[in-house]
Design a protein around this nucleic acid. Structure first.
Length: 411
RNA sequence: GGGUGGUUCGCAUAGCGGCAAUUGCUCCUGGCUGUAGACCAGGCGGCCUUACGGCCUACGGGGGUUCGAGUCCCUCACCACCCA
């Protein structure tokens, strides 16, 4: 029988291991850069590989709406489509269901007016039409057209996209939801987990096409997702339900995860005794601060992703060690104080940006809104976190994880 | 030499008797969840106040009318265009 995940060492609850995928091995614990629309924004596949990325994310919701999964399947699958030959994971679209339903994501903070032509203005926020036990109906944020996702549909789309790891279709719970709502979403997530699994088991391979037009699939691994909000008993119930099913990996979802790190830590502590040791664990949406990565790795998590490093990069917020607690290991390169700073973003960083360019230059590129700013900044932030993960793995292997974490806490 | 228009917070603008005074840009600062995000929010004369708010200085210079002037009148300076 094939082996997907191997633990190679353990230090306390922190684990180091490797994921074996059709597109190469992935050393864990791993941070996965987010490439929603089949691109990690501002980077090409060479930038990504040189930054040390072994696995990236893409999104089912976005790729279904554009360009459409059949386009990607006919192109030979997402790896060929975007020229990325390492591992890739697709999210199921479950988070978008949650995101679409959240009022705060349709509020003033987001532009809803898009100029379509000189005389036509389209006011088209994404809209959640309905959620029922069978699936979700929603309107596209691109053109307002109505679409429907069911667990079966989400899995089928993910097979056509052709990721190495795919996610069960789930319902993410808002942080402020009451218990009945959380329970409801959790029960639905469990039912959808079984249906996602059943659909996947029919054919555990991707459905993408070779140059000859014949299907040329590769093995895909399916993760289930634990929900249950901030309720201990619900989280435990969800963990038992998901852990019992023959998923290849276990994800932990919910709005709190990554957003509220003390809640995330509590949830992980509750789940610790209930998670199977032999399956990879994935906290969805963790990685705003380097310290967040320590928090989850310390609690036995193997995988995590976050839009923060790439988005922060485009917004001029760049990671560095010893920036003090105040700004959480980041500096804002657009600040006036960097206009003539001839040092590297992070003097200890060995990424392309830090080796070749100064803070003053990056400051200028951002002020001038030059496109190179976003690429150089993203290269740095991704490299920074991935290199931190590499050090973390090494320290787990050497049994020095606690000391290593402390060196960052004290920084 | 004559005529017309203009001079408002770094730049550009609004303002037509109640104004610390519009808007855009620049500038300053902050925020970023399984990406509707190369985005969003706040600030932008000075001083004081936790806040409500208060005081001072301000619409080219000077003078005048008025309870009150960036706004009306006179004058000077400068800029632009037109006619000689």
């Amino acid at each position: 029988m094939e082996i997907f995940f191997e633990r190679t060492s353990q230090d306390g609850r922190a684990r180091a291991g490797v994921l074996h995928t059709a597109h190469g091995d992935v050393e864990t614990p791993v941070f996965m850069p987010v490439g929603t629309q089949a691109t990690v924004k501002a980077l090409d596949s060479r930038d990504l590989a040189e930054s040390g990325a072994e696995i990236i994310l893409a999104n089912t919701y976005h790729l279904h709406l554009r360009p459409d999964e059949d386009v990607i399947a006919r192109a030979g699958g997402i790896h060929k489509f975007m020229n990325w030959n390492r591992a890739l994971l697709t999210d199921s679209g479950g988070f978008q269901v949650f995101s679409l339903a959240q009022k705060k994501h349709t509020g003033d903070r987001h532009p809803t007016l898009r100029v379509v032509s000189q005389s036509q203005v389209l006011d088209q926020p994404p809209t959640l039409v309905s959620i029922d036990d069978d699936g979700v109906t929603f309107r596209s944020h691109l053109d307002g057209s109505t679409h429907r996702f069911t667990p079966e549909e989400s899995i089928m789309i993910q097979k056509k996209i052709g990721a190495d790891i795919i996610m069960a279709f789930d319902e993410c719970t808002p942080d402020d939801a009451d218990r009945a709502r959380v329970q409801d979403a959790m029960d639905r997530t469990h039912a959808w987990a079984e249906r996602s699994l059943a659909e996947h088991k029919k054919n555990p391979e991707s459905i993408v096409f070779g140059n000859d037009g014949a299907v040329r699939g590769h093995r895909q691994f399916l993760f289930g997702i634990i929900q249950g909000g901030s309720y201990k008993d619900l989280r435990e119930e969800s963990a038992r339900a998901i852990a019992t099913l023959p998923f290849d990996g276990i994800a932990i979802g919910g709005e709190s995860i990554g957003y509220n790190m003390s809640a995330t830590a509590h949830i992980l502590d509750w789940l610790a005794p209930l998670l199977p040791e032999n399956k990879p664990r994935y906290t969805m949406g963790v990685g705003v601060s380097p310290l967040d990565l320590f928090e989850v790795v310390e609690r036995g998590v193997d995988m995590f992703d976050c839009v923060a490093p790439t988005r922060m990069a485009r917004n001029g917020s760049l990671y560095l060690k010893s920036a003090g607690v105040k700004n959480k290991f980041r500096l804002n390169i657009t600040n006036a104080q960097f206009s003539e700073d001839q040092g590297a973003i992070d003097p200890d960083c060995r990424c392309f940006t830090c080796v070749n360019h100064t803070r003053a230059y990056l400051h200028h590129l951002f002020k001038a809104e030059e496109l190179l700013a976003y690429r150089l900044a993203t290269i740095h932030n991704i490299h920074f976190l991935l290199s931190l993960m590499q050090e973390m793995r090494q320290n787990i292997k050497n049994g020095k994880f606690r000391e290593f974490k402390q060196s960052w806490v004290d920084a």
